[in-house]
Amino acid sequence: MSFEASRDKFQAYLTKQGLRVTNQRLAIFDAAFAQKEHFTAEQLLDKARAIDDSVSRATVYRTLPLMTESQILREVDIGSGEKFYLPASGTNSQVAQVVCVDCDKIFEISAPFMEWYGSTVSLKLGLKPITQRLQVSAQCIAQRQTGLCPHRVAK
């Protein structure tokens, strides 16, 4: 989904929910869609404040659920106690996540088999799948060998 289509979808969702389309919410949207990697709420706060310094932490934390409910952002929980987000691409909902336990970097790879697998196991139980995810925790081979993780992002 394009930036413009996602922005229109978010604005329509806010209006439908009886919420105002504010400059702060649009700054949060713009900051989120400028990201190429998974990000946390705190990272988004920093980026949104660079766009509009009136953006508050509370507004970011209230806006993130609106963005995920409107399906323009995907939420990823890697079990670290912190949630990560990524703009929904709309191109492939069948992805597997591989999480480096050494640096918490999240990789996403296409996993077209997931739809078949989810349907097959659910139907055997008389159920219809709604959502599914595959997440693999992995160790960084380079870090184990050299002590340096090539994927580690400086904080």
Rank of each mutant, 00 (worst) to 15 (best):
A32K: 02
S119H: 11
I78E: 06
S54E: 15
E75R: 10
R144N: 06
E37R: 10
S89I: 08
P150D: 09
L86F: 12
N23C: 05
R25L: 01
R62G: 07
R49S: 00
A48L: 13
Y13V: 11
F113C: 12
F10Q: 00
D30I: 01
L19C: 05
T120Y: 14
T22K: 14
S122Q: 02
F39I: 14
T40V: 08
L19G: 02
T146D: 07
D102V: 01
C149D: 08
D102C: 04
L14P: 12
D102E: 06
T15L: 00
R57N: 07
R152I: 11
V99S: 01
A58N: 02
F33S: 05
P129R: 13
R7T: 09
F113L: 12
I106V: 14
A5D: 14
S2E: 04
P65V: 07
L127K: 12
K155G: 00
L26S: 08
L134K: 04
L86T: 09
K16I: 02
T131L: 02
M67C: 02
K9V: 02
D30Q: 06
R152W: 15
S6T: 01
K36Y: 04
K155I: 04
Q135G: 02
M1R: 03
L44W: 02
W116I: 06
T59R: 15
I130R: 13
Q11K: 11
E82I: 15
M1W: 00
V121M: 08
I109R: 06
K83V: 03
Y13D: 13
R25A: 01
S54C: 06
D52L: 13
V121F: 06
S119V: 01
K124I: 00
L86Y: 11
I72G: 06
W116D: 08
A12F: 11
H151K: 08
S6N: 05
L86P: 01
K124M: 00
E42C: 00
A111K: 11
S110A: 12
A154T: 13
K47C: 13
P129W: 13
T91M: 14
R74Q: 13
V121P: 03
L14M: 13
E37C: 04
P87C: 15
L134P: 02
D77K: 09
N92E: 05
D77R: 05
K105Y: 14
Q17P: 08
R74P: 05
F107I: 03
C100H: 03
M67I: 05
R133N: 09
V95F: 00
V55N: 02
V76H: 13
A96I: 01
S2G: 04
A5E: 15
I51A: 07
C149M: 04
L26F: 07
A50W: 00
T146M: 07
Q11G: 03
P150C: 10
K155M: 01
S2K: 06
C100K: 02
I141D: 13
Q143S: 08
Q71Y: 06
V95A: 00
E75W: 05
D52F: 08
E69K: 15
K36H: 09
D77L: 07
K9N: 08
P87A: 14
A31I: 11
Q35R: 11
A34F: 01
C100A: 08
Q132F: 12
G81Y: 14
D104A: 11
G147Y: 03
P112A: 15
D77S: 12
C149H: 03
A142K: 10
S122A: 09
V55A: 04
T131N: 05
F33R: 04
R74D: 14
C103V: 13
